[in-house]
Computed example of a mutant assay.
Amino acid sequence: MNQIQLNKELIKQIIAQDRKAQFQLFELTKRMVYSLAFRMLNNEDLAHDVLQETYVEVFQQIKNLKHPEALVSWMKTITARKAIKAGKKQFEFDQLDQHPDPIDNQFDSWFDGEILDQAIRELPPGARAVFMLVAVEGYTHKETANLLGITESTSKSQLNYAKKLLKTRIKNLINA
Rank of each mutant, 00 (worst) to 15 (best):
Q3T: 02
I4W: 05
Q5F: 01
Q5K: 07
L6N: 01
K8N: 13
K8Q: 13
Q13A: 13
Q17H: 07
Q17K: 11
K20S: 11
K20E: 09
Q22N: 08
F23P: 00
K30R: 15
V33Q: 00
S35D: 03
S35V: 05
A37P: 02
F38P: 00
M40F: 03
N42I: 14
N43D: 15
E44W: 06
E44N: 13
D45E: 14
D49F: 02
V50R: 04
V50Y: 05
L51T: 04
Q52E: 14
T54G: 01
Y55G: 02
V58W: 07
V58A: 06
L65V: 14
E69Q: 12
A70C: 11
V72H: 11
S73Q: 13
W74V: 04
M75E: 00
M75H: 03
K76Q: 07
T77H: 08
T77I: 01
K82Q: 13
A83N: 08
A86S: 12
G87V: 12
F93L: 01
F93R: 01
D101Q: 14
D101H: 14
D101W: 09
P102W: 06
P102I: 10
D104F: 10
D104C: 06
Q106A: 08
Q106D: 12
D108Q: 12
D108L: 07
D108K: 09
S109H: 14
F111C: 05
D112F: 09
D112H: 06
G113R: 13
I115Y: 04
L116T: 11
L116M: 15
D117K: 15
Q118K: 15
A119Q: 03
L123W: 00
P124A: 09
R128K: 10
R128E: 03
A129C: 14
V130W: 00
V130R: 01
F131G: 09
M132D: 00
L133F: 08
L133G: 02
V134M: 10
A135F: 09
V136I: 15
E137I: 12
G138L: 08
Y139T: 10
Y139V: 07
K142C: 10
E143P: 06
L147E: 07
I150T: 09
T151D: 07
E152C: 10
S153Y: 08
S153C: 12
S153H: 12
K156T: 14
S157D: 10
Q158R: 02
L159V: 06
N160H: 07
A162Y: 00
A162V: 05
K163N: 03
L165D: 00
L166A: 04
K167E: 04
K167H: 13
T168K: 15
I170M: 09
N172S: 15
I174D: 02
A176N: 09
A176Y: 04
